[in-house]
């Protein structure tokens, strides 16, 4: 009886949590289908009188979203692939190779994780502008090609695979390079998927950095492009929300497809999203 009660309580809390998380999302969908006056009505309304699907078409055409979309796809995929590549190599080195100063280097890298990202914005900006990269794809991509968080997570996953399999691969004639890509990476699939998805989402949703390092409209990414609906005359909420919806939909789809791996990977690596 007490067991049943605590189970009910648990479900109630979880449901409440889920609803709380969902409300902003539902509000976004609802607002995206309202007329302009409806968006600022007090008390607020949840269900518009007639659904304004036209908001989506209008939002898409009001700013060069197709271009933003391309930019976001390019930046996100190159960043993710590049970062994954460097991280896999570094994680392998830390997990399996023996080299001089390994532990010291690792501790120094670990130390960099303690530095808040905001502190790096100005130095990074200065560096990139000296390199003449501002307002180019390079500025959006290069700073993110290495991530110690990803290295650290992958190292944990690599270390959790049996060392004997490494020796077995050597005996079977695999070089370190072959072992890494044909054995270690496939064996760590769930963790790699998890960090990939986290990186894709982070990269796709990045706002601050792309805003700072791009000036021209053609270099903007989707989240930055959403600003188009905020002008001196005020914010067109219904259009902003319609645009936000199509910005996040690819991520929602990605998440739904890979949910199984992400959860497995996150719980395995003991990392928090």
């Amino acid at each position: 009886m007490a067991k049943k009660l605590s189970k009910i309580l648990l479900y109630a809390i979880v449901t409440l949590g889920a609803i709380t998380m969902l409300i902003p999302f539902l509000w976004m969908l609802s607002t995206s289908l309202k007329t302009a006056p409806e968006t600022i009505k007090v008390p607020p309304i949840w269900i518009p009188k007639s659904l304004q699907w036209g908001n989506y078409i209008k939002a898409w055409s009001e700013a060069p979203f197709a271009r933003y979309f391309v930019n976001s796809v390019v930046v996100t995929s190159v960043t993710t692939v590049g970062q994954l590549f460097t991280s896999i190599l570094a994680a392998f080195a830390f997990a399996r190779l023996k080299f001089f100063g390994k532990n010291l280097i690792f501790v120094i890298f670990l130390g960099t994780m303690m530095i808040p990202g905001e502190m790096l914005i100005i130095p990074n900006f200065v560096t990139l502008s000296k390199l003449g990269m501002i307002d180019h794809y390079a500025a959006l991509i290069v700073p993110w090609l290495a991530s110690f968080f990803t290295v650290f997570t992958l190292r944990q996953a690599f270390q959790s695979t049996p060392e004997q399999i490494y020796y077995a691969a050597k005996m079977d004639g695999a070089t370190d390079w072959k072992y890494l890509w044909t054995v270690l990476v496939p064996m760590s699939k769930s963790t790699i998927t998890a960090v990939t998805v986290l990186q894709v989402i982070g990269s796709w949703n990045a706002f601050m950095w792309p805003l700072i390092v791009t000036n021209t409209e053609t270099m903007r990414t989707l989240p930055v492009g959403l600003q188009a609906f905020t002008t001196d005359a005020g914010t067109e909420y219904q259009l902003l929300m319609a645009a936000s919806t199509f910005v996040i939909i690819p991520m929602v789809i990605l998440y739904m497809f890979l949910q199984k791996y992400i959860i497995a990977g996150i719980s395995k690596a003991g990392l928090k999203g």
Binding site: P162, Q164, I165, Y167, A168, A169, V183, P186, M187, K189
Partner: peptide, 8 residues
């Protein structure tokens, strides 16, 4: 000793 087969 523990066979070390490739699980994947």
């Amino acid at each position: 000793q523990n066979y070390a087969l490739y699980p994947h």
